[in-house]
Amino acid sequence: MGKLKIEDLDKIAESARKKISLREGAGKVKITVHMGTCGIAAGARNIMATFLNEIEMHNAKDIIVVTSGCAGLCSKEPMATIEYENQAPVKYIELNEEKAKKIFDEHVLHGKIVPEYALSIGSERIQ
């Protein structure tokens, strides 16, 4: 590894600030796990349990966790929607525990969307 530059230090400081603000309550992320009958039958309970474990492991105190019903896309369950502060909600589909962990590490903690697991960006409500 080469010498650290001032810019590198800035990057490290910025990423640490984000993590700390999330932990200390300045940031807000909402995780919604879809828990309709279809979601539950497809494994939504384990997805929720994985998110809860990650929250505990990272001591991430400023995360809101809720459930919602069927979003009308039963074949894509288990699904979860992540709403990171000041970003559009992202709906993730066909989740398993590994995918949920990756989404937590990248999107919930750092605001970096994981496009390969995402269905779309936008609200879950169909008007």
Partner: peptide, 14 residues
Amino acid sequence: GDLSKTMLVMVAAN
């Protein structure tokens, strides 16, 4: 089934 996991998930999310 895993009744304890069901309790955890429903209580923590609500």
